[in-house]
């Protein structure tokens, strides 16, 4: 009944319906985001300003406590290293995925996805077994009389473990961009006399950069909030901000301070992305032009 009514409506109404249609499709996800992310985030901000009383005390405390600043900076440094390691490791891998035949590609895809389906805790514990002083790597080194590498309870160990956990988030966006690159462009540059290196750096690399940026942003942001991997693979000197938040909220019941730490991390991330954004767009345009 009602459908036939709307069908007989004027053209303007149906145009309006067309405009709102896509938004309606996004509605379930939007509602979910508002309910599951938006509202809790709002309460976090509210608590950071209102507990134990209204004011900026939690932020004053945050910036007045040296350990917070050291750990905040460290959180960004570790995340940057993780992103770098992921880019370096993922780039050739994703390229290989585009270059090989379908069977080998399936194998490479599975190699990325299978660890992705295993819980992060399990993978991290596997790294403990590999990295610890009496672990696989160091026993091998000792057997070869090569001394020992300090891996577990160091930032190096944390970066290795986190990069492995986050690698799929780098490989998959890279692959989806790379497989869309028209390789005839590379061939064309070669036929015009470019060396393989030049062809790569002036043609292929710029075209693949959107994938690098997309992957890097996802990896970097996910890395900022890591908790379990630094806790298990790291020592005091690789403690990240999430651990301090946990201590404030769960041990000291200082929800306000925990909230302030979260807000500071969020704002710092926004600022960093805002600074990096124009840079990326510019490079991207240059890439598209060349």
């Amino acid at each position: 009944m009602s459908t036939s009514d709307t069908r007989s409506d004027s053209g303007a109404a149906s145009r309006a319906r067309r405009n709102w249609g896509p938004l309606a499709l996004a509605l379930p996800a939007l509602l979910l985001l508002v309910g599951v992310i938006g509202y809790p985030l709002f309460t976090v901000v509210l608590r950071s300003l209102s507990q134990p009383e209204w004011g900026l005390q939690n932020y004053i405390w945050f910036f007045g406590t040296p350990v917070n600043l050291v750990v905040l900076q460290r959180t960004f440094t570790i995340s940057a290293w993780v992103t770098l390691v992921c880019v370096v490791a993922a780039y050739p891998y994703a390229y290989a995925m585009t270059a090989v035949g379908p069977k080998a590609r399936l194998l490479l895809t599975l190699c990325v996805l299978i660890p992705f389906w295993v819980s992060g805790v399990v993978r991290t514990l596997a790294w403990v077994i590999l990295l610890q002083d009496s672990g696989v790597i160091n026993s091998t080194l000792r057997a070869l009389d090569l001394g020992r590498l300090r891996l577990i309870r160091t930032q190096t160990g944390v970066v290795i473990g986190m990069a492995q956990v986050l690698l799929p988030f780098m490989i998959l966006p890279l692959y989806s961009v790379m497989k869309g690159i028209d390789l005839r462009l590379v061939q064309a540059s070669r036929s015009l006399g470019a060396s393989p290196l030049r062809a790569f750096f002036t043609v292929y690399l710029p075209l693949s950069l959107p994938g690098v940026y997309a992957g890097a942003i996802i990896v970097f942001i996910l890395a900022l909030g890591f908790y379990i991997t630094p806790a298990l693979l790291g020592g005091p000197r690789s403690t990240m901000l999430s651990t301090l938040v946990q201590n404030q909220v769960l041990s000291l019941l200082q929800w306000g301070r925990g909230g302030a730490m979260g807000v500071v991390l969020l704002l710092a991330t926004f600022i960093l992305l805002a600074l990096a954004g124009p840079l990326m767009r510019q490079k991207h345009k240059q890439g598209a032009r060349s």
């Binding site: 406590t65 040296p66 350990v67 050291v70 750990v71 020592g235 005091p236 000197r237 690789s238 403690t239 651990t243 301090l244 201590n247 041990s251 000291l252």
Partner: peptide, 11 residues
């Protein structure tokens, strides 16, 4: 707790 968590955070 504050002092101890600084030890644990490597500072």
């Amino acid at each position: 707790n504050e002092k101890w968590s600084a030890v644990l955070a490597g500072n």
